[in-house]
């Protein structure tokens, strides 16, 4: 039995993997053409930006916080990029750092408000969400289409992988994931995030740099959101204030389905990636089905959320019962 004994922390993650494989198997048996490398890789291509956002969101949720501003930051980034490239005719090499700076600064502002004035992350990032979306409308209410060689290149180049291909965005997303996994497990900052999510008061008394960590978490989330905004802009080749409307919900859903406890303190970046892939596969199945309307995506995501949230509860209750019977 001992070798089979699993840490209850890892159960949600395993369930996530199992679910992904089951859904993939379901799709493969039901639809011809589903079981192809390209369909699988498309999951990454179509959701590269969501993976990047979810990585940032994972850190936020691990710390016990939440970031509702990410969808709007994506929209703002796309607007900033589009207006600077098209209207101001700046080189992409100047535009990209500016875009990343915008997201990081919004994150920095949110983190500072949360830490220094002890405001709730929920309400601060809600304000951030309004602000970022409002600012993108201030730039322009209309869509700005991007017509620029560099952006075209980023959008259309394909990196062959056997018979199939991936996009540059996928590479960016995977680099972010690898970095995040390393930071989460092997850096002091990453461990501080877990400690903060476990018990903030203890973290303070243990002398951990709680303030710095908190602020940094939101900077990272803001940075990830603006990077995702760039990737999204490559994908859409336009800037628009309505881009990525409600994306924060998808990101939160992906993180939860990926096995991270919404109360913070337990979870893995890798889980969130699988969470994104599960959201992607739902959409793929609906596309392959053909007759299903798009709103079924929302209902399916809702159902999965319910499943995972109740599952998390059961695990938490179980582990409590186990503990109380020991003492």
């Amino acid at each position: 039995m001992k070798s089979l004994k699993l840490d209850y922390r890892q159960l949600p993650l395993l369930a996530t993997f199992a679910l992904f494989i089951m859904m993939y198997a379901f799709g493969s048996t039901r639809y011809t053409g589903f079981l192809s490398t390209q369909v699988f890789l498309n999951l990454f291509i179509d959701n590269a930006f969501l993976i990047i956002v979810a990585v940032g969101m994972t850190f936020v949720i691990l710390s016990g916080g939440i970031d509702l501003s990410v969808g709007s930051v994506i929209a703002l980034t796309s607007m900033v990029a589009a207006s600077l490239v098209m209207n101001a005719q700046l080189s992409p090499w100047i535009v990209i750092p500016i875009c990343l700076l915008v997201g990081s600064l919004i994150g920095l502002g949110q983190g500072c408000l949360i830490h220094f004035f002890n405001l709730q992350p929920f309400i601060v990032t809600l304000a951030g969400m309004f602000l970022a979306r409002g600012l993108s409308y201030l730039i322009s209410v209309e869509t700005i289409a991007i017509n620029n060689p560099f952006f075209d290149f980023m959008a259309s180049s394909r990196i062959p992988l056997g018979d199939s291909f991936i996009s540059i965005s996928v590479v960016i997303a995977l680099v972010v994931v690898v970095l995040a996994v390393f930071v989460g497990h092997y850096s002091k900052f990453g461990r501080n995030v877990y400690a903060l999510g476990g018990n903030e008061q203890s973290a303070v008394l243990m002398g951990l740099p709680v303030g710095k960590t908190k602020i940094m978490i939101y900077v990272i989330s803001g940075f990830c959101a603006s990077l995702a905004g760039l990737v999204f802009t490559f994908y859409m080749l336009s800037g628009y204030g309505l881009h990525a409307n409600g994306l924060e919900l998808d990101a939160i859903a992906a993180v939860v389905i990926g096995g991270t406890l919404l109360t913070g303190g337990a979870g893995y970046v890798a889980g969130s990636v699988v969470g994104v892939l599960i959201l992607g596969i739902i959409q793929t199945i609906i596309v392959f089905e053909g007759t299903l309307s798009s709103w079924w995506t929302k209902i399916a995501i809702g159902a999965l959320l319910l499943l995972f949230i109740v599952f998390q509860r059961v695990i938490v209750i179980r582990s409590k019962v186990k503990k109380s019977s020991v003492t």
Binding site: K188, R191, N192, Y194, A195, G198, N199, L205, M206, G265
Partner: peptide
Amino acid sequence: VYQEVNLCSNLSVVENIFIGRQ
């Protein structure tokens, strides 16, 4: 060391001993 143990119970014992000065 406080009455209510002020460590992070969601982390391992090792980590609780070392966190902050890993």
